[in-house]
Amino acid sequence: MKINNENGKNKLELKNDMTIQSINCQEFEEFIIDFLDSNLSSMQQNIFLKHLNECPSCKRYLEDYQKSVKLSQAAFDNKGESDYEAMPEELVQAILAARKKLP
């Protein structure tokens, strides 16, 4: 994640010294991962949420971004069915035979 300025600090880091009050869409996007992982400080999060509330375009972007994450998780959701594959007997025997050869 890079939003480096000339001091080598990113813009949200600079917000901790209260020098910056807002971010643009590009900066917003670069902090989505940390936002979703709850890794932003409360001050950083406030600035992030402020942009989210003021920018319909980023709001739509974030909604679809989160939707694609949820769709990928739903694709692997086995709806309570077993998450086990049938284990071929030949594979069981091959593993046990390989174990016997171990030093």
């Binding site: 086990y84 284990m87 046990l96």
Partner: peptide, 15 residues
């Protein structure tokens, strides 16, 4: 116990 480990978790690991 080794055989148990293979039969109990093999299908899960395969998935």
């Amino acid at each position: 116990s080794f055989e148990y480990l293979v039969r109990e978790y093999g299908g899960y690991m395969l998935a």
